[in-house]
């Protein structure tokens, strides 16, 4: 059941990635650092821009998670300093000001991604992985994915379990592909709203829609078969995974 070990398994083959976390909320930093499993990531934490700068020189990270609202000099200033110094390390910005203008300012300052507080941990981890993948230059060509006896072919738009072809709507198929892409990782409702429904506004009542859509997908995906693949993780979201 303890999925942290299993999740880290795939990453064991590559070297541990170093991540610098910068935020003035010590508690949040510690939580995030614990959630980024030691098998896959090593982390350093900094509470201010100055501390972050010295840590950067001590050991250059593969990725920086940077909060905009730092006490003295803001996260955006630090980012601008890094970029002007020629540092190209991917930066994931965190901010409590989730307004579109702030997002634009952050991306203009040279951030690679942007996440508004309060974020979901699965989403943070997914984005960290995606950024590292992008930076590593080996975006996996998604031709076919398998989860247990489920096979997904995004090109042909075909999903099968064993020999049986599943009759899915395009939304259900997109949902299934997105879940599969997370390789057993938990997917929050916010991630689904953003990535499957492409809903940018945070004020649209989509949670009901997502729950119903998941339930309908489960009817087609799991009910006719002995093993369940689509799981609800209460409080977190959903996960597509062959249970051990």
């Amino acid at each position: 059941m303890s999925h942290d070990r299993q999740e880290g398994r795939g990453a064991k083959t590559i070297t541990t990635r170093h991540i610098l976390l910068v935020d003035d909320e010590a508690r949040l930093l510690e939580t995030v650092a614990r959630a980024l499993h030691p098998e896959e990531f090593s982390t350093a934490i900094a509470g201010s821009a100055e501390e972050a700068f010295s840590l950067l020189q001590a050991r250059p990270p593969d990725l920086i998670v940077l909060d905009i609202g730092l006490p003295q000099s803001s996260g955006l200033d630090l980012l601008a300093r890094l970029r002007s110094a020629g540092v190209v390390t991917p930066v994931l910005l965190l901010t409590a000001q989730n307004e579109p203008e702030d997002r634009v300012r952050g991306l203009e300052a040279g951030a690679d991604d942007y996440l508004g507080k309060p974020f979901s941990l699965p989403e943070l981890i997914a984005r960290v992985r995606a950024l590292l993948r992008r930076a590593g230059g080996h975006a996996p060509p998604q031709t076919e994915m398998t989860v247990g006896d489920l096979r997904l072919d995004p090109v042909q738009h075909v999903a099968t379990r064993g020999d049986i072809r599943l009759d899915l709507t395009s939304r259900e198929f997109a949902l299934l592909v997105y879940l599969a892409e997370q390789k057993g990782g938990v997917v929050s409702r916010e991630m689904l709203a953003k990535n499957v429904w492409h809903e940018t506004s945070r004020f649209t009542p989509l949670n009901n829609v997502i729950d119903v859509q998941i339930a309908r997908l489960r009817q087609k995906l799991d009910e006719p078969f002995p093993t369940r693949l689509l799981h609800t993780v209460r409080g977190l979201g959903f996960r597509l995974k062959e249970q051990a």
Binding site: E25, R27, L28, T31, V32, A35, L94, A96, K117, P118, F119, S120, L121, P122, G235, L236
Partner: peptide, 8 residues
């Protein structure tokens, strides 16, 4: 954010 991250 802290609350949610700790819970999750």
């Amino acid at each position: 954010a802290s609350l949610r991250a700790s819970g999750e």
